[in-house]
């Protein structure tokens, strides 16, 4: 039987984010002995929150040095907890913080890590995971001989653990840090102002803007300010998350007319992100393969493009509207606004 360690870090407010609870939910489904490992400035509240999860032990590395998402200290903390737990399987949420260190930690433990795991299952004594290769073009189910096996589970793939809070007794694992492990200091987070934040990973709807928004239209002119107004108007009315094609987000670097709120962080696809949303609406985008690989986890897809032969027409979308996105989105916003005020 495997000993399973769920390795989680707390958020700045001491809470556990949903991906951590999802990792716990997934780990519980495997059976075996469960150990919880927590890293953060102060982890007691998080331990109490999941006190009812049935863990045999709660281990923690905490203190001011472990507030920051910093490779050297996070790796040291994760390594120390894993060694104390002696676990054969380590399940962790694939947050940016853990993604930075888990493969390095697996190396220190003499084990292996699998990242971007989308499912875990146990059958007939064997644990299997699912993960994608070649940027979401093919999915593999794999098993591993190496232990410890670190499994970083992508957020949004498993049911979050739900259970009772209570009182958990936390065992502290001591980690002595050398000065060399503090050569890096996290100084802050750079984010757009809250009302300008257009990337919303938890939104049910994704709006993708393509380069067409900045191209010359039927009247021979570009209409970038109008495009901005339509897109921002739609985002405001729907609270959708905004994505872009590479061609659109690259325009800035090439000195062309750009949508001022578009950055590389918005890019979806091969060299962009692969977000999870229930629905996605593509506008003024051609739907080429390097773009649409980023739509793997968008369930319902519709597109508006002037080109009836674009990629969306060829099995990439459920519905393609061959129409002018400027005209359609103006009407969409009008109708949404009317609906709101009704």
């Amino acid at each position: 039987m495997e000993t399973i360690l769920v390795l989680a870090h707390t958020e700045t407010d001491g809470s556990l984010a949903k991906p951590a609870l999802e990792a716990l939910g997934a780990a519980k489904s495997l059976g075996g002995t469960l150990i919880i490992g927590l890293v953060g400035e102060n982890v007691q509240a998080a331990a109490h929150r999941i006190a009812g999860c049935g863990a045999a032990k709660f281990l923690a590395v905490s203190g001011a040095d472990f507030t920051q998402a910093r490779y050297a200290t996070d790796a040291a903390a994760a390594e120390a907890i894993a060694k104390t737990a002696g676990a054969s399987i380590i399940v962790a949420p694939a947050t940016s913080r853990w993604n930075r260190v888990l493969s390095g930690v697996a190396h220190r433990l003499g084990g292996r890590a699998d990242t971007h795991v989308t499912a875990i299952s146990a059958a007939a004594g064997a644990i299997s995971i699912n993960r994608w290769y070649y940027r979401q073009r093919m999915e593999a189910v794999i098993q591993r001989a190496q232990r410890p096996w670190v499994i970083a589970l992508d957020p949004g793939c498993c049911e979050a653990w739900q259970g009772d809070a209570g009182t958990a007794t936390v065992e502290n694992v001591a980690v002595a840090l050398a000065e060399a492990q503090k050569r890096t200091t996290v100084t802050g987070v750079k984010a757009p102002a809250a009302d300008q934040q257009t990337i919303r990973p938890d939104a049910p709807l994704l709006l993708v803007a393509g380069a067409g928004w900045t191209k010359k239209q039927a009247d021979g002119q570009t209409h970038v300010p109008e495009a901005e107004k339509l897109i921002l108007g739609f985002l405001k009315l729907t609270q959708a998350s905004l994505g872009g094609s590479k061609s659109l987000v690259d325009l800035g670097g090439e000195g062309q007319a750009v949508l001022s709120f578009m950055t590389h962080l918005h890019q979806i696809g091969q060299t962009g992100s692969t977000p999870r949303h229930q629905k996605g609406l593509s506008t003024c985008c051609h739907g080429e393969e390097p773009h649409t690989v980023g739509w793997r986890f968008v369930n319902e897809r519709r597109a508006i493009s002037l080109d009836p032969n674009c990629g969306w027409a060829r099995g990439k979308a459920d519905v393609l509207y061959v129409a002018d996105a400027f005209a359609v989105m103006a009407k969409v916003n009008e109708q949404l606004a009317a609906k709101k005020s009704a």
Binding site: A140, V141, I142, P308, V319, Y321, M329, A330, K331
Partner: peptide, 28 residues
């Protein structure tokens, strides 16, 4: 140490419905 139990390509093709020659108001 890795056993690939399966490697599959998802069925990517959707049965795309193409809506043309429809006024913007109706598409909206």
């Amino acid at each position: 140490g890795v056993k690939f139990v399966s490697v599959t390509q998802p069925s990517q093709r959707r049965d795309t419905q193409i809506v043309k020659d429809t006024p913007p108001d109706e598409v909206a």
